[in-house]
Simulated assay, not measured.
Amino acid sequence: MNIKQIRNATIIVEYAGKKFLIDPMLAEKGTYPPFPGSIKQDQYNPVVSLPTSVDEIISGIDAVIVTHLHLDHFDEAAQKLLPKDIKMFVQNKEEAKEVQNSGFQDVEVLTKDTVFEGIQLVKTKGEHGRGEELLKLMGEVCGVVFKHPSEKTLYVAGDTVWYEDVQKELDTHEPDVIVVNGGDNQFIEYGS
């Protein structure tokens, strides 16, 4: 297993001989305006440059996992730059349709029983904030657990706050390695 953070939630996971790109945000630094309602209204997104070329990032990728369709997890640049025939995993049927509408041909919804090239990919629960209004605004999110006999169990939590279902995922899968997106973005109206 090898995990390389690119920026934000964008990571490359090499696992059981396969290379996964998770939550690709591939635009140049400062391409997008600040997120509406966030406390960081002076920062255009992405806030840092890519550490290497896009070609190097996407070279040899076997599959892409998108935990949800927010701009900082699957941006317009990724939609344009990724090969349209690459294997794409998403969290639900609605998002699968949106990704297919972007031209991607091999889109699959993650479940608790997804298998890709002998690697079990388990969709996990997540909550993108606290409070009913904020959760409704932010929408669904997921994480993913990677399992293979030759590897340690990996849990990529995705954009979630700590709550009882995260503990249940930990108890169920007993991951050896956990990746958490910890950016502390806050929204003025909601206080979190």
Results as ranks from 00 to 15, higher is better:
P83C: 04
E98V: 11
E133T: 12
V115S: 11
K147D: 13
V107P: 00
M88C: 11
L134F: 06
V64R: 00
L50S: 02
Q120F: 13
G118Y: 04
A78F: 00
D106Q: 14
E56M: 09
V141W: 01
K84I: 08
F146R: 04
T67H: 12
Q79V: 06
S53W: 07
F116M: 05
K123V: 07
G126Q: 02
T114I: 12
V90Y: 03
K112H: 14
V64M: 00
D75E: 00
V109S: 01
V107Y: 00
K112Q: 15
V47Y: 13
G139Q: 04
K80H: 12
R130F: 09
M138H: 06
G126S: 03
G60Q: 10
I65V: 07
E95G: 02
P46L: 03
L69K: 03
I58D: 01
V141E: 03
A96R: 15
V54P: 02
L50R: 02
E95M: 07
S49A: 15
V64Y: 00
E132R: 10
P46H: 05
L134G: 04
G118T: 06
K123Y: 08
L110F: 07
L135N: 07
L121P: 02
L110I: 06
A78Y: 00
K123F: 08
V144K: 06
M138S: 08
Q79P: 07
E56C: 07
N45G: 10
T124N: 09
Q100P: 06
G129H: 02
T111W: 13
V145I: 10
H73I: 08
Q79N: 06
V90K: 04
F74M: 02
L69Y: 05
R130G: 06
D75T: 00
V115R: 09
V144F: 10
L137I: 12
S102W: 14
G126P: 02
A78P: 01
V54H: 03
M88R: 09
S102T: 09
E108N: 13
L137Q: 11
M88A: 12
L81S: 12
T114D: 10
V145Q: 04
T52D: 14
E95I: 02
K84P: 08
I57A: 01
H73W: 11
T111C: 12
L137Y: 10
L135D: 04
E94T: 14
C142G: 09
K125P: 05
Q100R: 14
F104T: 01
E76M: 11
L110A: 04
I61D: 10
V99R: 02
S102C: 15
I58W: 01
R130I: 10
L137P: 03
E132H: 09
D106P: 08
V90A: 05
G131N: 05
Q105D: 11
Q120K: 15
G143R: 03
T52G: 10
D62I: 05
